[in-house]
Amino acid sequence: MGSYVLRRVLQMIPVFFGATLLIFLMVYTLPGDPIAAMYGDKAADPATVANLRHKFYLDQPVWKQYLHYMGNVLTLDFGTSFTGRPVSEIMADAFPVTIRLALVAFFFEIVIGLTLGLVSGLKRGSIGDTLVLVLTLVVISIPVFVLGYIAQTVFAINLGWVTATVQDSTDITQLILPGLVLASLSLAYVARLTRTSLGENLRADYIRTATAKGLPRRTIVGRHLLRNSLIPVVTFLGTDLGALMGGAIVTEGIFNIQGVGNILYKAINQKEGPTVVGVVTILVIVYLVASLVVDLLYAVLDPRIRYA
């Protein structure tokens, strides 16, 4: 087990540097001058521009910039944004908001997604099954920004159950609607994945054996079927947690939540390189850790998988 974890962590290192390098190159080598962007239409004083470029390390070749940046990141220094605010401070403000939102969404994803998947998967061909299939198909087809507007219009403006935008992100009740919208797509996938997985395992020999042994249905489903069927679902859920945090750009925009998605969107538009790279670096780490945890969870769910 220990050596497996070590090997996985070692494998994560090139992926981490590769992903951050990729985003770094996209931010810093593609056309578009961030210093010029700061000035907008105004003509900038060449000396000031040169000074700023030097200050932000922009006058160095890209590979030097990257090494310099990574050197700092390893000491947890994410640099300063072009507006002068430390990036770590910006992130410390935004990440708790997004983590709360992502956890609310994750909760819905598991509870509603698994419930729907079980309802349809355990009784294939029933009315409930068809209903779940149609419902998830509709949810998958409607883009999240349309769904967000519909939800906002119906529940906040027409019915008045919640506020249209989130005023206080520490209030979980305000995060319910955005959380549901953010979770909608993944929720549908979880339901369908669970259904498919259950369908495949229901026909497995060990289920027939268990039924033939006369085990109560509760035991068959709970101990045998679920444990085996949930493996692909767990994989999806694990990798999705990172996606929920990075994919909140649209949802956070619609509900005016000052989270990671919002600052990322602003930073990308203003060519705020340090902020973009900083946030993406954290998201990459979240993704890598989540996939490691998923692999380790396999061993818990499936006794056949043992890491030497």
Binding site: L22, I23, I249
Partner: peptide, 15 residues
């Protein structure tokens, strides 16, 4: 793996 670490929408926005 490297490309998987970067969310599609986010990368496309930057690009």
């Amino acid at each position: 793996d490297i490309f998987f670490g970067i969310p599609l929408l986010l990368g496309a926005l930057v690009l």
